[in-house]
Design a protein around this nucleic acid. Sequence first.
DNA 1: GCCGTTTTCGGCCCGACTGTTTTCAGTCG
Length: 578
Amino acid sequence: MLNSSIADTFDLIADLLDFQSANPFRVRAYRNSARTIRDYPESLSVLAAEGKEELMKIDGIGEDLAGKIITLVETGELPMLNELKAQIPPSLPALLRIPGVGPKKAALLFKELRIKSLDELKAACAEGKVHQLKGFGVKTEQLIMQGIGIASQANERLYWSTADQIANELRQHMASCKKVEKLEFGGSYRRGKETIGDLDVLVVSDDVNAVMDRFAEFPGRAETIARGDTKMSIRTDAGFQIDLRVVPAESFGAAWQYFTGSKEHNVILRGMAKAKGLKINEYGVYKIHGEKETYIAGKTEADVYATLDMPVFPPEIREARQEFEWAAKGKLPKLIEERDIVGDLHMHTHATDGTASIEEMAEAARDRGLSYIAITDHSKRVSMASGLDEARLLAQWAEIDKINKKHGKKGFIILKGIECDILENGDMDLSDECLAQADWVVASVHYGQKQPREQITARIVGALANPHVDCIAHPTGRLLNRREPYEVDMEAVFAAAQKYGKFLELNANPARLDLNDIHLAAARDRGIPIVINTDAHSTDGLNVLRYGILQARRGGLTKEQVANTREWKEVMEMLRRN
DNA sequence: GCCGTTTTCGGCCCGACTGTTTTCAGTCG
């Protein structure tokens, strides 16, 4: 059983318990464990076979949950969940997706009006039944009507790159308001998450109304969800929510820290503060003496963290994973930066599905400060992209030799590479004799992505065993919001990469970002070199590198752990050594 | 349901906003 399935089960239990108004801390225990399990790098099914004690070593999993995981893995079901399901209709959790409807309101709707689904709720609202319920009113009924539309919409999270565009537009828009002394973004956007659910904006100003009025004029605004003394929320016409907070300068650091999150990171931080007789909220850090409290910090993030003897964590690792452990040991990693990258080892030209020539790609890469690139067009199996057969590939390599000779003195190298398909039967799409002549070979799966776990894992592991293959491109094949990853057993892939001394790619395309942060951390712990590539199909495509860097930072990668921060000569030595 | 360098019991982060209320519950982040 996949970790994600176990996590889904626990999340469902949390939802159902919520409806029953169970102890909120019990509900939280299920949600916390679900999150931990979803992020856990190793297979819990494997751990479960080793017994309860192994599972209980994981933070947030105690005796009871360990037992439930084992039952789940062994039998595929959970008696406790079956009992809950018998009491609560399965469609009820859908009601929770309506903004403003939580467990209490949903439970009341079910109890009083027997409402079990969004459709039934819509009908009840239309008939005016909902506003008669205790605790509901006409406004709430209208809000639910609108909310049903939002809940039934796909409600997709935005790519980080899209959120970045919106953030930049908003920054420009707000810049013309003279009352804005300072403006920063927080939330998952600042933490560089691959997708963003909403945008958090923080403004320092002594004129809240002026700032909010300007915010209300944002061209993308479709509606204002809330507007209070310090906080305002709008929704864009695309259904994307933006939350604004206006704070005084002495609270800026505390607020920025607070709104950057993650929530889990903050919960731990506040727990630490409490143990020290301090309180942290979005206005500052306070020393508690009896009934009274005094402000001791809050102007900058550094001030806030310093009250707990903590360093300023890079936002990308504020996920309550390993950062506190690192900080306690004084070993916070120095995360990789965009300028550390000196080469790009995956890109296409107009020979296949790219739009630029070899020379154009090389020049664009050189403009961006790189010292080498690999041209890695598709192999022939990818016929839709007019993939290269052996003859065309050899011709391309001859051309690369020529170009290198022409520009050789400038110290920029174009490598003869290929993105060779791993065929459905596990064979490579080009012969070993052909691949042997390449400087650099990335292997990838484009067909037969739906194959069962054993089969697709064997294909990728087989490719890693091929002596001519250097790297696996986009190892899980997922496309954010669009396509699930292959059912590949990443543990087996990591083991093979280690055994054969191969590299794994972090594909920087904002829709891929494959490997993800969890996998990157796992690869890092195993000493597997990562290569951050753009997979560019045009000269502009080279610009996606920054998204890959964010993802790498979320995975806790340093410069040393990324192969293409080294000059090509060194990379070659790594390959030869391996 | 989890957890312990004050604790194996009794805590578990904290505040803003809204709507429906006459002082607060529910929701959200």
